[in-house]
Write a protein that binds this DNA or RNA. Structure first.
Lengths: 200, 200
DNA sequence: TCGCATCTTTGCGCGACTCGCAAATTTGGG
DNA sequence: CCCAAATTTGCGAGTCGCGCAAAGATGCGA
C-alpha cells in the first residue's frame, strides 16, 4: 500500500472518528458536516468524497469492525466446529472494541452514545452497515461449509442469526432494564442461537 | 375510529403507495417529493407531515405488513407450539402480499422493485422498518413465552432469527442465481431456523 | 342543528445537504 | 527532476426537512 492509499485510509478513519466524537458530544443535529471536516482539517466538499452522509461516516467504524469478523473467521483452523469458530471470531474482533478499549467510557460518553443510537438517521445507516458486513460473513461461512452464497440459504441464515444475536445483545445493553456487562450478554446470545434457541 | 382518523390513515397509505408506484416506474432519484404529493392531491408540505423522507414513505408498507405478523401471532391458539405459531403467523400476513396479490407482478414491475431495493437510501429505511417491526414481534413472543422483553434476550433472539430468515429469503429471491418461488424460500428458511440451523 | 375547540393542511422561508464539474494541488514512478 | 494520475477544493444548482403561523376541516356537546 503506497503512501497515497495509506493517507486516504487515515483521512477516512479520522473523518469517521471525528463524526462520532462530535455527535456524541453535541448530539446528531448539532453537528454540521462543516464541523466534522474542520475537525480533520479538510474541506466540506472532501468529506463528501469519502462519505455520502453524516450517518454513513459514523457507521463506517462499526462497518469496518464488523467486516473483520469475517476475516477472522477465515483465519480460524479448519477443524474447529463452525459455531465455536464463529464465537471466537466475534469475540476476537468485536467484543474488545465494543467494551471500553480506545474510548473514554465515562458517564457522559455512554449517555451520548445512547442518544446517538436513537437518532433515526443513524439507525438506518447503522443497520445498513451491519447488513453489509453480514454479507461478508455469509461469504466466509459459505467458504467454510462448502455452500454457495448465491444459491443456498444456509450461509445467509447463519450470518443473519449471528447478526441477530449481536443486535439483540446491543439492544438489551442500550435499552434494557437489567444492567449486564456487554460481553456477558453477547456470549449468552451467541450461546443460545448456537444451541438452536430452545424454548425457555 | 372516527372519520378523521380513517382519512388520515387513507392518506398515509395513498402517499406510501404512490411513492412506491412512482419509484418503481421511474427510479428512486427521478421522483421528487412534489410528484408523490401531487399524485395523491396534497401539498409537498403535507407529505412531510406524514413521512420525513421518500424512503420512509416507501418502507411504510413493509412496516405495516410486518407489524401485523406480531398481531397475528397473538391471535394464535395458546397451545400451538411456538415455532409453528410463528410460521403460520408469518405466512398468514407476509407471504400472500409478497407474492403477487394486489400488484401487477409483470416483468417491468419486478425489475423496478429490484432496482429500488438496491438504492442506498431505500435500504436504510427498509431495514429500519424491518427492525422496528421486529420489536413488535419480540413483544408478542415475550407475551407468549412468559419472558420479559426488557430483561431477557430470548424474545429478541427469536424475533431476530425470524427476521433474519425473512431477510435471507428476500435477499436470495432478489439477488440469487437459482430462481425459486419466494414462498418456497421463505418456508425453507423458517424451517431451518426453527430446527436450530443444523450444519448441512 | 349549530358553534366552538381541536386537529390538519398549507404556504413561506431558512439552513443544510448531495453531487457534478473543472481548476488547483499533491503524489509517485520513471 | 518531471509528468501523468489521483486527490482536494471552490462554486453552483437542485432538493430536502422542518418550524411557524394562517387557513380550513372536523366532530362533539349544548
Amino acid at each position: 500500500m503506497g503512501l497515497r492509499e495509506r493517507k486516504k485510509e487515515e483521512t477516512r478513519i479520522a473523518l469517521s472518528w471525528a463524526a462520532i466524537k462530535l455527535t456524541v458530544e453535541r448530539g446528531f443535529d448539532n453537528v454540521k458536516v462543516e464541523d466534522i471536516a474542520a475537525e480533520v482539517g479538510v474541506s466540506h466538499r472532501t468529506f463528501n468524497n469519502y462519505f455520502s452522509s453524516k450517518g454513513e461516516a459514523i457507521a463506517a467504524r462499526h462497518f469496518d469492525r464488523a467486516v473483520q469478523i469475517a476475516d477472522e473467521l477465515r483465519s480460524r483452523p479448519d477443524d474447529e466446529p463452525l459455531w465455536e469458530a464463529i464465537t471466537n471470531a466475534v469475540f476476537a474482533r468485536f467484543a474488545l472494541g465494543m467494551q471500553e478499549a480506545e474510548r473514554p467510557a465515562d458517564e457522559r460518553w455512554i449517555a451520548g452514545v445512547k442518544l446517538m443510537s436513537q437518532h433515526p438517521e443513524h439507525q438506518g445507516e447503522f443497520l445498513k452497515a451491519h447488513t453489509a458486513a453480514q454479507e461478508a460473513l455469509a461469504a466466509a461461512v459459505a467458504e467454510r461449509t462448502g455452500t454457495d452464497a448465491d444459491r443456498d440459504l444456509y450461509p445467509h441464515l447463519v450470518a443473519g442469526v449471528v447478526g441477530a444475536a449481536i443486535l439483540a445483545a446491543i439492544h438489551l445493553w442500550l435499552h434494557g432494564d437489567a444492567p449486564a456487562p456487554f460481553e456477558e450478554l453477547l456470549r449468552d446470545a451467541l450461546g443460545q442461537v448456537a444451541a438452536g434457541l430452545p424454548t425457555p
